[in-house]
Each structure stands twice: as C-alpha cells, then as structure tokens.
Design a protein around this nucleic acid. Structure first.
Lengths: 243, 243
DNA sequence: CGAGGGTTTGAAGTGCATCAAATAGTGTGG
DNA sequence: CCACACTATTTGATGCACTTCAAACCCTCG
C-alpha cells in the first residue's frame, strides 16, 4: 500500500509533470488515489464521460475500441509507468477508448478536471502536455506504417525488438508479457496467424522459442528481418522511448 | 499574387493562431512568403533539417514516407487551408515525412524557428498547438482502426462520406479531387484494387459512378455499408472536422 | 484425474497484390 | 480535326497472406 507521499513521488517521474513548480504539481496531484484491480476489471468504456485519468504502477491494461458489429480493435497494451485516459480533455471529455485490466494491476488515478484547468494556467505543464501528445503522435504514425507495410512475422519481430531493453549486440533473452492471444490482437492479427508467423520468424532469424520465453542470439539479424521495410531506419527507435 | 496583408489575413484563420495577441501573431508570421508550385515539386524530404512549415492556399500536397526497400506509404493528401511540416519541432527539427505537390498549388511557408521560440513564451499559442496536435492524434487513431478493420470497399465508402459537405439526407453529387491512383495510395491499396473495390461498393450501395463524378442517392445507405465496423458511430464525424 | 482455457495444427476460403494486357482518356503536333 | 503518344483506368488470371472453421494438443488448476 502506498501512502500519499509515495504516490506523489511516483507521479513526479511522469513526463507530463517534469519541471513543474511545486504549487502546480500539488494542485494537479491532489485527488490522486491508488487502487488495485484484478484481471478483467473494466476501468472505463469508450464515449463515457471522462472524470479521471490513470497511471499504471504495475500490471498491464488493454486499451481498445469496439465497433458496431462487436469486433474489437486493440489500440495498445500498456505496461507500468504509462498513463492513459488523459487525452480525454481534448475529446470533449469523453474517453476515446475503453480500458480493461489484463493482468492484476496497481494503478493511480487522478481527476481530469484539475489537470485541465491547470493546463490553462501553467506554461510548463502545457509544454509538457504538448511534448507528450506530440510523441504519441509519432508513435501512432509508425503504427500506421507498420500495419500497412509489414508482414505478420515482421510485426512480431518489431514487437520483440521493442521489448529488448539493453542495446547489447550479443544475445538477449526475454519472455512475453501477457498472453499470446493478446499480443496477436495488439498486432492486429488472429491468434492462429500469430502462432504461424512466430514460427516463420524463428525460421528466418534463428531466434529460439520455448513457451513464453524467447532467446535472441543475434539481435542484428532480427533487426534486418523485421525492419527491412520500415521507414524509420533500424531499431524503430522512437517507438521504444514512448510509454 | 498576395501581398503581405493578404497573407496575414489568410493565416489568421488557422486554428493554431486563434485568439493569439497581435504581438505574438506578428512575430510568428513575420517570415511568411507565398509561392506557387507545379505538380511534382518536392517541398522537402523526410529526415531533412526542418526550416519552414507550410500552409496550402490552393491545390493538393501529398505527404509520404519511403522505406528502405523503396516502397512508399502515403500518409495523407491535404487540401487547402491545411498546414504541414509544423510537427517537426517535436521531431528533433527533422521533417517526419516528405511532401510533394500533386496539383499545381499556391502555398505560404513560415519559419519554424520563430514558432518554436514563441511557443515557449506564449500561453495561448501553446494551448492552440496542444489542441491542434491532440486533434491530429484522434484522426490518426481512427486511421489505424480503419486500416485494421475495414475492407477496401468500406475504406472507399468512408473516404466518399468525408467528401460530402452538406448533411442532407437526400442525394449528393461529388467529384473525386485528385486522380484515382492517388486516392488508392492514400487509402493504402493498389490502383487495381481500388477500381474493383469501387465497383463492389457501387453494387452494394447503389451509388452512381461516371468517371470522376459520383452520385449518391441514398447517403444513409452508404453510411450503413461503410461504417458498419467502425467504432466511431456513423459519419466518422471526427475525421471530417480536421484539416 | 478431469475441466477449461490457451496454443498449435490442418484444411479451406477470402481479400488483396501482382503480373499482364486491353481499353479509355488526354494532350500533342501535324 | 485527326492521328499519335502517353497515361490513367479497367479487366483477367494467378499467387500469397491472412482469416476462418475445426480439431488436436497442452498446461494449469481445482
């Protein structure tokens, strides 16, 4: 359990609060509360009146939209230290997507109203929001490109590359975060396609797969394969930086 | 030919300059010049050092990115009163895409440097940029959804709906702006696919096609077909609002 | 051990891309 | 005004990638 000071400490690392003066910071974080949610919990649904925005401390959330015929588009699956729901202030105060916890999670939520009113008053905060939104923009741009130009195995490769932390030239081991069906949805493909595409990727790049654990001996190899028809040069650099 | 006052007048309608004080406005628009370009003119290429941003007065520009293997992804094709290149200030001052005139055009260009420095000083301008970027975000989000969930005929239908100005329930006539090959690229499909998909759309929705002129007797019909698996309800409302 | 969800595999279908060629349109110079 | 050249658009045939439907296989957990 976190107390008030812990919460403030955690929040202070967020991009959008960088360099903010004490006063503003205190105002904006005033209504913060932490909560624990289990897998399956729906935090909010799209088009609902937006009251609060959220920050992940641990666990994973799925952001998605549903179409009239019931199909679901997974927009993103966010790890810890990501924030979401904050874009509602530019969307007539309606959530632009739904959010569901997909792995037991610890989150902080904050009121949108104070953020919104402070943005109108405080220059630094506004600049931070601007930078934040602009980055998000870049990320989405890449996403569009990937959907249009990459094959299923390449999209998986790109996804794996973004999971690798260190920039080591040698081998890397990682294990997949949430379940494979979800990853498939995140990458816009069917579970079956994911399974087959992963095998194809293995055959093409000498990565090793055992269950949810993947070992990549030669990262460069994977980069060559995955980033071949991506415009942003090799390691999709911009995508990794962004929460 | 526009003189200095005409230019300022034109620019004052831009979203990003809304409500700005005289002082700021004059500073930011100081280096504005208008130019006329012919079809085929490349204004700038991706990753190039960004010095200026642009506003279309007439004609069309194509924004695109090229991948390592030479494939081209058309990001957007913008009509008059759109601005572009301005996002470079959040992209390390490099243009995030290339821009090519696709129809003889009249444009105003402005220096990025002043915009950037003013944004740091002026609250209203910053807020405007923020709103601008946030809208762009919404638009891109929809774009991703469309790529993932809509069929080729549906994407064309959606494109047509966005071209219809009036919200009349009856018939609507419109003619396609730039050539069909470009529309196909904009929608992420091959020209052949476009041609076939357009026929399929015609068969499904009773629209009438003769050359570049399209008559839609029953708009609701088209909406039903095109927006069926789109999450943003019927007439893709948000997309239309944005330049 | 047995139930149930996640994952893989197989077979068949669909949609879009690609290659190739015919056709329609457009602008040119004679 | 016509013939030619050139480009846009359409049409056909074929192939590949991903989806869909179905069934088997795991694996975990009660």
């Amino acid at each position: 359990m976190k107390n008030k000071n812990d919460i403030k400490e955690t929040l202070s690392h967020l991009d959008i609060f960088k360099n903010c003066d004490k006063q503003t910071y205190n105002t904006v974080t005033a209504g913060a509360v932490t909560q624990i949610f289990e897998k399956g919990k729906i935090l909010f649904v799209q088009e609902e009146q937006a009251e609060r925005y959220y920050m992940m401390i641990s666990g994973w959330v799925k952001l998605f939209r549903e179409t009239l015929d019931g199909a679901q588009a997974v927009i993103d699956i966010l790890p810890k230290s990501s924030i979401f729901g904050e874009m509602s202030i530019f969307n007539d105060d309606l959530y632009p997507y739904s959010a569901e916890i997909v792995d037991n999670a610890h989150v902080i939520s904050l009121p949108l109203a104070t953020l919104k009113s402070e943005i109108n008053k405080n220059g630094t905060l506004t600049m931070n929001m601007l930078r934040h939104v602009a980055r998000h923009n870049n990320k989405q741009g890449k996403e569009i490109e990937h959907l249009a130009l990459q094959s299923a195995p390449q999209r998986i490769g790109c996804f794996l590359l973004r999971l690798i932390d260190q920039e080591k030239s040698g081998a890397a081991t990682l294990h997949l975060p949430y379940d494979k069906t979800l990853i498939a949805a995140r990458l816009g493909m069917q579970p079956e396609t994911f399974s087959r595409a992963l095998r194809k990727l293995r055959d093409a790049t000498d990565i090793d797969i055992s269950g949810a654990t993947i070992t990549i001996e030669n990262v460069k190899n994977l980069e060559n394969y995955a980033c071949m028809n991506c415009s942003s040069g090799f390691p999709c650099k911009d995508l990794k930086k962004i929460a």
